[in-house]
Design a protein around this nucleic acid. Structure first.
Lengths: 207, 207, 207, 207
DNA sequence: GATGAATGAGTGTTCATTCAT
DNA sequence: AATGAATGAACACTCATTCAT
């Protein structure tokens, strides 16, 4: 990866926000240039094209998104506590990188656009592997049951979070969350606990 | 809601597919008109504008999406079986209306576009209410625990499904699903069971 | 060929002039649209693209350029007179379609742009064939010599004309042609006679 | 004229080729800079502007194009042989400087761009004068006829060559010239002889 | 002397929409 | 009711050129 200068970083920050809010097609490089206070031509000049800017954006954010699961794995705490911290780590991380996740969601899910950064897939595989090890610990200690499809656990965590967030207006209403602060607070407390409980329940559930 | 003629229905079908595949901004009315074999001007003529066509599309699909939870609620089967069927109903429904859910996801989540069809919110509230009743049955029978935040259950079901689907290429790879048929089959069997188990585990889990 | 409406014809007329004067790359569709008093988008709407408009232009002009050599061939006049008329026909025709010839010259000679309208090549072949027949008559009557490379005669006629015209300022100066009228008159008289003489000289020349 | 350094010379060589191939407007200074391995800003820096670079190019090439007609004039050979050598000299020279002639043709013929280098006109006048003298010799010796418009002879030579070259694909086809080598060889032999014959025929032709 | 960064005007094209019929 | 023609704004991108270093 090539080092980015200040202007490029600022452009990507603006782009990240706009792409997340308006979508890739819904955001024009004029909007980005105007918000970033740079000339329109700079986008092509810096990144080659709008498309390549998206790639640069995703690429530059992927490292930030990498979960610090390894260090968590090495912590010497009980399996349940470890799972709790892991879920919390997931939520915190996703919540912090909400924008880029939104973009990855929107632009690379069903659309023709392809996201074949090996880095991204590798990251997911790596995270999954550490996840597997953490679960294995709990299984070895007898805390967790044996029949667990670990690959399907991240979708529970991330999916629940996103589905909640996607329906933000709905949940703000029925949960009586008046401000965005209350909403964010709910995510950090109730929702996180809900997901933690869900995962733990599944880990001990014997059909 | 105004009754739609055959042409309008065909247009919406084409639009639904294209919006889901390419996004709203990524789809031009020319594409839609060409695929639907109608004049370009027809879209504006029939629906007023591209935006209003999206509204008409969502509106016309909402009734299709309505879950038949009520009849399920009235079935006389054990709570666990009822929850299993409910999850299956969710998955089947979402999977069938994948396109429109994709659109709702992409276009109405973070974007400026607002989805304040009262019908949509009402539907969710109604579904949630029936959901609540079904859970209540299990709680009353002593099968489920008492502390359950029912409002956060649908996000588990739908979120897990969507998160899985969003990462379709990834999961096809690591689960060794060679064809789309195998993939769809996995959703109908393993993934559905996984979600069923998750929900049930949570319903009986006592922290 | 598709029939062109009035607006399209007008656009092509404007384009013909501008392309000849400024070159294809030197002419913007905005210039054309402005001069033809149509919206910019009409060019793409009518012709698909700027490039395709050039094709349409050339195509529509090719039929006009076709020489009426056949009828000349059938005239019952002496070989020399026939050659004279033929040269005159060439000059008149090229002079009339100066613009499009200029374009064909500039855009399709060395540039990457390819002119593989079979119609154009066929026209040249057809003209060449008739040319051959007319020469044959003179050879059969004993007026012309036998060793004539007919294929190289058109380049003499057209080339001399174009080379003269390319150096219009130079020749206006040294031939003391003060106005464009005088210049055009010179082409119709002196230059035409010069070329006629050249061709006839070659036809009787025995090395 | 300012002396050019190595970089400038290289730039002009690249520019010459590209201008001939793609036209002036069709060639960007980026293309030139990239091919010449220099910074984009160098072109403006060295030559002032793209336009002025074209002028510099033409100017630097004009001396190369100057025919060595004077020395030929002084050779002591029969008039016909002298004319033959003169034509050959023309063709060889033009063929060697094909690129720059192509540019002069395309960019300075009908376009707004003006080529009023006095040097260019002077060169043509000078060449014409020598041409006149050579013809005069033949007329004085009684070999050539008296009524010759010498000013119209160069257009025959150059025009025939260019018209042939402009229709290179056409002539390669009908003359069955398979390779560019065969084509170039044809120019040096058949076409040259054809033009020589044409000129000589005209010089002795009495109407 | 030489250059990477930056600019604003310009390119061809596509857009959703409207209009006359 | 339905449509081909037409519009003006917007699009991503490239241009020749300038400027600070």
């Amino acid at each position: 990866m090539i080092a980015l200068n200040d202007k490029q970083i600022e452009i990507l920050q603006v782009a990240e926000k706009l792409f997340a809010e308006e979508g890739f097609d819904g955001t024009s490089i004029r909007d980005i240039a105007k918000k970033a206070n740079v000339n329109i031509a700079m986008i092509s000049y810096y990144f080659g094209s709008k498309e390549k800017m998206l790639e640069a954006l995703v690429l530059s954010r992927i490292s930030d998104m990498r979960l610090q699961l390894e260090s968590l794995y090495n912590e010497n705490i009980p399996p349940f506590a470890k799972v709790d911290k892991m879920v919390e780590l997931y939520i915190t991380r996703i919540n912090k990188n909400r924008c880029i996740y939104q973009i990855l969601h929107s632009e690379f899910s069903n659309k023709k656009r392809e996201l074949n950064f090996e880095g991204f897939t590798e990251m997911k595989k790596s995270n999954l592997e550490t996840f597997r090890n953490i679960i294995k610990e709990g299984q070895d200690s007898g805390d967790f049951q044996q029949e667990i499809n670990v690959a399907l656990l991240p979708p529970i965590i991330m999916g629940t979070y996103f589905q909640f967030h996607t329906n933000k207006p709905f949940y703000k209403q029925i949960l009586n969350l008046k401000t965005d602060e209350e909403y964010d607070n709910y995510i950090g407390t109730e929702l996180t606990q809900h997901i933690q409980k869900t995962i733990k329940a599944l880990l001990v559930y014997a059909n």
